[in-house]
């Protein structure tokens, strides 16, 4: 399970990095091939980067599907919890389990719809237009990502039933920014106070 968890994380990180590098390369390529340097310009134009946009989109779609599954595990998906938070602990538990169940069901159904869709697609010769990659492979992100997401919802629900803990993404937490440290930094810097009393501008 630990291995699966890490695979999921590194997979989305790699997709994110790859998409960024590819798009950046395509921009640099277009920019350089617009500069009139004999020979080099012709050589640059011959390099075909027209697949970059399509690949970026597909990498991000895959990242979105698997990242959404990771998001269930880390509790990043936002919901309207104003009302639920006012309920008694017992009722609250019922609602939370209900919404986790809904998540599992929805993503499970979507996974199955997606699987059928991919199955149908695999029996056609449909390809993407730039990379000419079989479309069923591209669309595989839907069933795989959705089933994984469904599994994550069930996992979170089971954990909640057993321990009462929910993964909660803390939107206010900043990695690498220690508040105490920041205060000291602020004090050392030019941020020294001075009372305004009697001070004319």
């Amino acid at each position: 399970m630990k291995l699966l968890d890490h695979l999921e994380e590194y997979f989305i990180a790699v997709l994110m990095a790859a998409a960024t590098l590819i798009t950046f390369t395509a921009v640099v390529h277009r920019y350089l091939s617009g500069i009139d340097i004999p020979v080099i310009q012709d050589a640059l134009i011959k390099i075909n980067m027209s697949w970059a946009q399509e690949l970026t989109i597909y990498l991000f779609v895959w990242m979105a599907k698997f990242g959404a599954a990771y998001g269930v595990r880390s509790g990043i998906h936002v919901g309207v919890d104003v009302l639920v938070n006012r309920l008694s602990e017992k009722n609250k538990k019922v609602f939370i389990l209900m919404s986790l169940g809904a998540g599992a069901i929805f993503t499970g159904v979507v996974g199955t719809l997606g699987a059928n869709f991919v199955w149908g697609m695999a029996h056609t010769d449909q390809t993407s237009s730039d990379l000419e990659m079989p479309m069923w492979i591209v669309y595989l992100a839907i069933p795989l990502g959705s089933y994984l997401m469904s599994f994550r919802f069930m996992q979170v629900a089971w954990h909640y039933v057993r321990t009462g803990d929910l993964p909660k993404h803390d939107h206010s937490h900043v990695e690498g920014l220690d508040v105490e440290e920041a205060v000291e930094a602020a004090q050392e810097g030019a941020l020294q106070p001075k009372t305004a009393a009697g001070d004319k501008l």
Binding site: R30, S33, G34, I45, K46, S50, Q53, E54, D130
Partner: peptide, 11 residues
């Protein structure tokens, strides 16, 4: 576009 010596851009 390549036959024309131009630099094709998919968009």
């Amino acid at each position: 576009m390549r036959a024309l010596g131009a630099n094709p851009q998919v968009m």
